[in-house]
Amino acid sequence: MQAHRRHARYFVMMSVCVGMFVLAWGVVRFYSVLAAVALCVVAMVIPPIAAIFANARDRDDDWWDDPRWENPDWDQPGHDRDRPDHDEHR
């Protein structure tokens, strides 16, 4: 569910960015070119921020603690996902 939330957050922010560009040069430029340029400058900052927020982990996201990264045999009998085994001799 966390990935869906991140994708939705990214989609909304990028939609706002594209909408600001379209609004700036489709409508606002007829009233004020300076305001249209200002809208574009604000819209230009949104994509890096969207990428940062879309890739940020949630509080309940635990993909970095996945035992498969440390132990490739974690799915064999006797291994517990919540308490991964650690071999000292490896």
Score class of each variant (00 low, 15 high):
residue 32 S to P: 04
residue 87 D to M: 09
residue 15 S to G: 08
residue 10 Y to R: 04
residue 83 R to Q: 13
residue 88 E to F: 14
residue 37 V to E: 01
residue 34 L to A: 11
residue 89 H to Y: 12
residue 88 E to W: 12
residue 82 D to A: 15
residue 8 A to T: 02
residue 14 M to G: 00
residue 52 I to D: 07
residue 50 A to Y: 03
residue 61 D to E: 13
residue 37 V to R: 05
residue 79 H to W: 05
residue 88 E to H: 15
residue 42 V to D: 01
residue 74 W to R: 13
residue 20 M to V: 14
residue 3 A to V: 13
residue 40 C to F: 00
residue 68 R to T: 09
residue 36 A to E: 05
residue 64 W to Y: 11
residue 46 I to L: 14
residue 8 A to E: 00
residue 38 A to Y: 03
residue 86 H to Q: 11
residue 48 P to E: 09
residue 14 M to L: 07
residue 22 V to T: 12
residue 3 A to E: 15
residue 18 V to N: 01
residue 59 R to S: 07
residue 37 V to Q: 03
residue 61 D to I: 04
residue 36 A to C: 04
residue 59 R to A: 12
residue 28 V to M: 10
residue 8 A to K: 02
residue 82 D to T: 14
residue 61 D to G: 04
residue 70 E to W: 10
residue 45 V to A: 15
residue 43 A to N: 00
residue 89 H to I: 10
residue 60 D to C: 10
residue 72 P to K: 12
residue 87 D to A: 15
residue 42 V to R: 03
residue 30 F to T: 14
residue 59 R to L: 11
residue 79 H to A: 07
residue 12 V to S: 01
residue 5 R to K: 12
residue 45 V to L: 13
residue 36 A to H: 03
residue 87 D to K: 11
residue 90 R to D: 03
residue 50 A to M: 07
residue 73 D to I: 08
residue 67 P to S: 04
residue 37 V to H: 03
residue 66 D to V: 05
residue 10 Y to F: 13
residue 78 G to D: 02
residue 7 H to W: 08
residue 66 D to A: 11
residue 52 I to T: 08
residue 46 I to R: 05
residue 9 R to A: 10
residue 4 H to M: 14
residue 25 W to G: 00
residue 48 P to W: 03
residue 49 I to Y: 02
residue 7 H to A: 08
residue 70 E to I: 09
residue 75 D to M: 08
residue 38 A to D: 03
residue 2 Q to M: 08
residue 2 Q to Y: 15
residue 45 V to P: 02
residue 71 N to A: 04
residue 71 N to T: 06
residue 68 R to L: 12
residue 85 D to T: 12
residue 63 W to T: 05
residue 55 N to D: 10
residue 72 P to T: 04
residue 76 Q to E: 10
residue 50 A to Q: 06
residue 8 A to L: 06
residue 8 A to Y: 03
residue 22 V to H: 11
residue 86 H to L: 15
residue 71 N to K: 07
residue 3 A to H: 09
residue 31 Y to I: 12
residue 37 V to C: 01
residue 22 V to Q: 10
residue 4 H to P: 07
residue 86 H to I: 14
residue 34 L to W: 09
residue 90 R to P: 00
residue 61 D to Q: 12
residue 8 A to G: 05
residue 90 R to F: 06
residue 32 S to F: 07
residue 79 H to Y: 08
residue 65 D to A: 13
residue 7 H to K: 13
residue 74 W to P: 06
residue 58 D to K: 04
residue 22 V to P: 05
residue 29 R to I: 06
residue 16 V to E: 01
residue 58 D to P: 02
